[in-house]
Design a binder for these strands. Structure first.
Length: 745
DNA sequence: GACAATGATATTTTT
DNA sequence: TATCATTGTC
């Protein structure tokens, strides 16, 4: 046993955990060696299982924690697993390598900088990437296809950026792509879709549609140019000692493949590899794992995944990787299916199971050995109660909203904790609507949509203050025009009438603000009512002008926040928790900026934020504690991995769930170059719907309104029809004639 | 009824 | 920028 004697407490905890595992979980945990694939449906205790597996490896072999590698996709997944590990096996859990794919590769790059050709590499930031892209675009002549005809030199920066990322993800080479593009351009004039099939005006049958043809030629000329410039981007990025997220995976993969010695270092270290959420692996990540394990015919590989919950296909994830694993290891693969669910009632599980059975592309693994398609079994006796999900049809989306508010208030009255309620929808903008609804009805809510703090009033205020100081540093009185708006900030507590009086003096005299703010005889002559706040404000600016040049940037920022009185005023506000969190995020961002660029000046830092704002880049609010007292508003994607007692699926209409893919901000590709289409969009959507349904532990309502906000009819999503057709749900109509939208007025 | 030209409208997410 | 819906022609 490798766990030391001082850990007897954790041994007991761990043994207890092992005892509690059900039969299939025990089966998955107990086979130590060789590849194991665990099919883990929703709520089957996946994180617990992986933690137990790690504990078992440590207990039954002489493997050290650092020889175990656990890979997932998100930081959230890493945190969840890490916490569980420490809980069960104690401090030793910290030594297990629990990482995201990107963090794993980044660590390897950082540990072996010489291997990767440079010794001062840093991951590129969004802003740096934009800078490089803009610089290259700026240097192009105006008749370049990417600029010709556009006043904005950066017209195609987003498209180009996503093209670069796509090329890296799919590992495409510049020359191959250009060849494919040229091939199609040559074909175009002879293709039927570019010819008139009928006499039209002066054109005869068979004539070339000149306008259409020219449009496409121009489009592909742009694409060709963007592809060609890929190497220029790479060059410039390398010159600056930076690398992309995509590079992290690709570079390590390439190093593993090209340098056997390098690979063997890691093959010797990692004796056990555990992969979580395997259905989300993209091609590069899968190749990386395969390369890492290629030393063994039957590696100690433990994979956990559920093909029905694969919802990141649009990011390159492929379900077929699960089948690939089966094909690769054949009979050596230990296939286990978890059959018990610890989350939901049997009613919900039955409905969800029958629903996902409509997906046919994904069932290849589910009929092998002791694995068979069947509903998950509710593990707890409490979960046996009937709780068939309900589909509700409303007269309009307004009625659905009103009824939602009504239902929630009733639940709260019954004593239900708002934190146990989730509203799940497809697209973020549906959530925005709900935010307004909940605000009006004073329902506590929590939205997971990231907030860009650059757009918050408090950050805006701080930037204005610093902006003024910068002007004054450059030259006294240079900030004149920016001074007055600063006085209006509420935290100084200067009265409106006093500001008005000061401003009147300012515009009717030649006095500078410095003169006005220091001369109390002027204040007396115009009848200032309360001079204290004025003195405080002006003293702050004077002190800040002196202090700013003596302090390091983060300290200066904190100085501004504290001494201006902004923090004190913020603490008094109703939403002070949020506001303070915004301030924290800003300070953290500032510290990070200094880390990246130790010599950054206040001016540079301010310009950086200006540029971020111009480029729609965000400083995302960091929210550490998720309130347990408020209703969760979530997209189906974000709901993954979470569970709630009450789930309302809101606004489930066709246009939201089965909307066609819209590629804005992406270059269009010729048909000779289509991305691998081996995926079925409808099945992908159905999986997403399934993920949303299986978040519910005891109550699930699926709603839709027959009319939209302006009275146009809309269809429920196909998935609702399927549920009704299979008689898997209760159905109810709640149509209130003459009901418009009182709650919106 | 099929084709052609014109006009409104607009994802999901991580590192 | 691309697609769907609508209106306009043959």
């Amino acid at each position: 046993m490798s766990i030391t004697d001082g850990q007897s407490h954790f041994d007991a905890v761990f043994l207890q955990l092992i005892k509690q595992l059900n039969i299939s979980q025990k089966e998955a945990v107990s086979t130590l060696d060789g590849p194991t694939l665990v099919l883990a449906g929703p709520g089957t205790g996946k994180t617990q299982l992986i933690a137990a597996k790690v504990g078992k490896i440590l207990m039954d072999s002489d493997t050290l924690p650092k020889n175990i590698l656990c890979l997932t996709f998100t930081d959230a997944g890493v945190n969840a697993l890490r916490n569980r590990l420490v809980q069960y096996i104690g401090p030793e859990g910290h030594k297990v390598q629990v990482l995201t794919f990107h963090a794993f590769c980044n660590q390897i790059i950082q540990q072996n900088r010489y291997h990767f050709g440079q010794n001062n590499l840093e991951p590129i930031s969004d802003l740096e990437r934009i800078d490089i892209i803009r610089m290259i675009l700026d240097e192009l002549p105006w008749d370049n296809p990417l600029k010709k005809g556009y006043a904005n030199a950066h017209q195609f920066e987003r498209e180009w950026q996503s093209l670069i990322q796509w090329m890296k993800k799919e590992n495409y080479k510049v020359a191959d792509l250009i060849e494919k593009i040229d091939e199609y351009c040559n074909q175009m004039p002879s293709l039927p879709e570019f010819k008139y099939k009928r006499k039209q005006g002066t054109f005869n049958v068979g004539d070339l549609k000149e306008g259409l043809y020219q449009d496409f030629l121009q489009k592909y000329a742009r694409l060709r140019e963007a592809v060609r410039l890929f190497d220029v981007y790479e060059q410039e990025k390398n010159l600056r000692h930076r690398y992309d997220y995509e590079d992290m995976i690709l570079w390590v993969l390439k190093a593993f493949q090209d340098k056997p010695y390098f690979l063997s270092l890691y093959q010797e270290q990692f004796l056990y590899v555990l992969l979580d959420e395997f259905q989300d692996t993209n091609g590069a990540q899968f190749a990386l794992v395969q390369t890492l394990l290629n030393y063994w015919d039957t590696p100690n590989l433990f994979i956990v995944g559920d093909e029905d919950q694969s919802i990141y296909e649009f990011q390159g994830a492929r379900i077929k990787h699960l089948q690939d694993v089966k094909d690769k290891y054949g009979d050596d693969l230990h296939l286990v299916q978890l059959k018990e669910n610890y989350r939901s009632t049997q009613g919900i599980l039955n409905t969800a199971f029958a629903f996902i059975q409509r997906n046919t592309l994904t069932s290849s693994l589910k009929n092998q050995g002791n694995v068979s398609p069947q509903p998950l079994i509710a593990a707890s006796a409490l979960r046996q109660i009937d709780s068939t999900p309900i589909v509700v049809e409303y007269g309009s989306i307004f009625q659905e909203e009103a009824d939602l508010v009504h239902s929630l208030k009733n639940l709260f009255k019954k004593g239900v904790n708002p934190g146990q309620v989730a509203i799940i929808f497809r697209n973020n903008r549906q959530g925005d609507q709900l935010v307004r609804l909940f605000e009006k009805n004073s329902i506590p809510y929590h939205t997971s949509r990231p907030i860009n703090i650059l757009h918050t009033p408090i950050v805006f205020k701080i930037r204005r203050i610093i902006q003024y100081l910068i002007q004054e540093w450059k030259e006294t009185d240079r900030g004149e025009s920016e001074f007055l708006p600063l006085l209006y900030h509420a935290h100084w507590e200067i009265s409106m009438s006093d500001i008005g009086k000061l401003n009147k003096i300012k515009v009717t005299s030649d006095l500078s603000w410095h003169q006005i703010m220091t001369d109390e005889t002027i204040w007396g002559s115009i009848g200032i009512e309360n001079s204290q706040p004025l003195k405080r404000a002006y003293r702050f600016f004077q002190d800040a002008l002196k202090q700013g040049l003596n302090k390091a940037l983060p300290a200066f920022l904190e100085y501004i926040i504290n001494k201006s009185g902004l923090l004190k005023a913020t603490l008094k506000q109703k939403d002070s928790i949020l506001q303070v969190q915004i301030l924290n995020t800003l300070v953290n961002f500032c510290e990070k900026s200094v880390e990246r660029e130790p010599n950054i000046s206040v001016i540079d830092w301010m310009l950086m934020m200006d540029r971020m704002q111009d480029n729609h880049l965000a400083i995302s609010l960091e929210m550490p504690q998720v309130s347990n007292e408020s209703v969760h508003l979530l997209t189906a994607h974000r709901a993954k991995g979470l569970e709630f007692e009450y789930v309302f699926m809101y606004d489930c209409v066709q246009s939201e769930w089965e909307g066609k893919s819209n590629n804005t901000g992406v270059f269009s590709f010729p048909p000779t170059l289509k991305m691998e289409p081996e995926t079925d969009e409808l099945e992908a959507s159905r999986r997403l719907f399934y993920v949303a349904m299986t978040r519910a532990s005891q109550f699930l309502q699926i709603g839709f309104g027959k009319e939209n906000t302006v009275g146009k009819p809309r269809m429920p999503t196909l998935f609702i029809s399927e549920l009704l057709e299979d008689k898997l749900v209760h159905f109810e109509q709640r149509i209130y004639p003459g009901f418009f939208c009182p709650h919106r007025i």
